[in-house]
Computed example of a mutant assay.
Amino acid sequence: MTGLLLRLGGPLQSWGTHSTWTERDTHPYPTRSGLIGLIAAAGGHSRTMDPDRFSPLRFLVRIDRPGTHLVDFHTVGGGRPPKQTVPTAKGGYRQEGTGTLVSNRHHLSDAVFTVAVTSSDGTMLTETEQALRRPYWAGYLGRRACPPDTPFLITAVDDPHIWLHQRLPLARPTPYEESVTVEFVAEHPPDEPTGWTDNVADDPRDFTPDHRSYRSRPAYRYRRVLPAGLCGGYGTDYLDALSTALEEAA
């Protein structure tokens, strides 16, 4: 099956699933709603569009580097005159001494995920590739403050799942051991009944800001032992390994 290979890397990522007003969480891997939102933004779709139009898309996530979990103590509106603080839901302003909004914003630092995007709808996959190559709106990794670095859209290939399991370099340094254990997150059960299953409320029903809602879906997590030679390292070393892999497959 033809599909796309994406690399999601950057200084910070944040894939929230249970965010509240003051506690903005992050999932340990990209969410389905976050990936669909990224693709929808690239295609120029507004938040009022029906997310179900992207239901044919399927994602397989490889966790190249899980990153480091960090929490940003975030404040908004502090030290400003009353009429310059954060407005209330009723359209007014907060009383003196209550103008500062405090929140904890969770992020993944220095994480890298490689994603195989497939679809039973060839037209949808073509539209997705065109949108990611020439995005209408810039994409981000869960939050607008988290832009991706490059390479982002790697390429289109015939067997994206085989690429993730056997060919595509890992964005991590080569260990002293002969093999590495790598974690994957799939939307369908793996061929081998190993690993465990998360129940994640990240299948979007509505992106409208005042009516956001999500369905729960199973996320199948499993591990594979891959050869250490698949590790491409950091920076230019990784880019060289990626270029070599693509050239050999051409």
Rank of each mutant, 00 (worst) to 15 (best):
R133W: 09
P193H: 03
P151N: 06
Q95N: 06
S55F: 12
M1D: 09
V61D: 07
F184K: 01
K83T: 13
A116R: 10
H165A: 08
S179T: 15
T197F: 03
D121M: 07
G97R: 03
P190D: 06
E192N: 11
D240G: 05
D191R: 14
S19T: 14
P28Q: 05
R7K: 08
L8E: 00
L168K: 07
R217G: 04
G78W: 14
P56S: 04
L230V: 05
L132D: 02
V200W: 07
T31D: 03
D203V: 11
D191C: 08
P193D: 09
Q13S: 12
G67M: 10
D64P: 03
Y176S: 10
D237A: 15
H18A: 13
R172N: 02
D210M: 04
L70G: 01
Y222R: 03
C231T: 06
R223G: 01
P87D: 12
L246V: 05
R144P: 02
A40G: 02
D203K: 14
H165W: 04
A219Q: 11
P51E: 11
S216C: 06
V86Y: 05
A249F: 09
Y136F: 14
A156P: 00
G139R: 06
F73P: 04
T88L: 12
A171T: 01
G91Y: 10
T150F: 08
A245V: 03
T17I: 15
E192I: 13
L125C: 02
A186D: 12
S103L: 11
Y214G: 05
D50W: 01
G77S: 11
R32P: 03
N199S: 14
T85N: 11
R133E: 10
L6Y: 02
E129P: 01
L239E: 11
G67Q: 10
Y234G: 00
P189K: 06
S33M: 08
R224P: 00
D149H: 14
A40V: 00
T75G: 04
G10Q: 05
H27C: 14
V71C: 10
D159H: 13
L38D: 00
T100D: 05
Q130G: 06
R134S: 14
H18D: 06
A145P: 01
D149F: 13
A111K: 13
I63S: 06
Y29W: 15
V200I: 13
T68D: 06
R133K: 14
R47Y: 00
V86H: 07
S109Q: 12
P66L: 08
